[in-house]
Amino acid sequence: MKKWVYFILCLGWLTACSMNGKSEPAPSKPTAPIEVTFKTIPEVIQANQPTTLQVVVKQGNDAVEDASDVQFEVWKKGQEKHQMIPAKHQGKGVYAAEKTFDSEGIYFVTYHVTARNMHSMKQVELTVGEINKNEQEEGKDPAAQNQSDHSHDHHGLTIQLSPTETGKDQNTVFKINVQHEGKPLTNAHVTLEYWTGQEEKHTYVDAKEQSAGEYVANIKLSSVGDYHFRVHAIKGELHDHKVIHVHVK
């Protein structure tokens, strides 16, 4: 009988030691930003012929199949009218929409991708048909000319902001990922400008760089609803800004 009592006590002691010796779970890895690749099919675009606008969305090595919103904003250089075209999920991280350009010229396409509390957008220039240099210059709109006069390079700059949803009166660390031509843009001056609805007062907060191309800013939003965030990124002759919507619940 004593042997059984001794055995049970030893078993309990070993179990307790085993439980106390359990290692704590490793801290979760930081969320990787979504990566978006844009292309047209066919690559050479002709007027009055259907063209597929396509993005492939990935997070790390995984295809993003659950993007909440993907749209293409299309307009012709020199025209104010913009067309928003929703994309359809094709599988394997591919989202696409069809567009027929009704005339030759220079067009702009900005893709807007919202997925997993992150937003990515980038402007791409497309040439439809065959145009010469003079036609390209004639097609420039005043806004584009002003940007050129101020030596602002808007090409190849990608800006992502996360999260795009937060709670009222909650201290939120907003992360801004800035890349230029696919590489992290370091030592840039990044500012968050935000406001609600038609509010005239805009608040500005400088973001600090915590790693290569990643900037952070701590902000507390005091009202429920939708906020407009304009992210400004400046480095030398590079200057771009993107407007992203943040929902507060």
Rank of each mutant, 00 (worst) to 15 (best):
T203S: 11
H155G: 03
T186M: 05
T164Y: 01
D141L: 06
H189P: 02
Y111M: 12
E137K: 10
H152N: 10
H180A: 07
T186A: 05
K122Q: 15
S148I: 10
G182W: 01
E200C: 00
E165W: 07
Q179M: 15
W195I: 01
H155Q: 13
A115Q: 09
H189Q: 11
L157W: 03
G167C: 02
T172L: 01
D149M: 12
Q147S: 05
T110S: 11
A188T: 13
N171C: 00
N146C: 02
Q179P: 01
Q170Y: 08
G182I: 05
S148C: 01
I131Q: 00
N132L: 15
N134E: 15
D149H: 12
E135I: 03
A143C: 13
T158F: 05
G167A: 09
K201A: 06
L185Y: 11
T166Y: 03
V190E: 04
V173K: 11
V190G: 01
E181I: 00
N146F: 07
N187E: 14
Q145I: 15
S151L: 07
T127H: 04
N134I: 09
H112F: 11
V128S: 07
G129R: 00
K168F: 06
G167I: 06
W195E: 00
K122N: 11
E125R: 13
E130H: 10
E125W: 06
N187H: 13
M121I: 03
V190L: 10
G156S: 09
V178R: 04
S148G: 08
M118W: 07
L157C: 09
R116F: 02
S162R: 06
K183L: 10
A188K: 08
H150Q: 10
W195L: 06
Q179S: 13
N177C: 05
T127D: 00
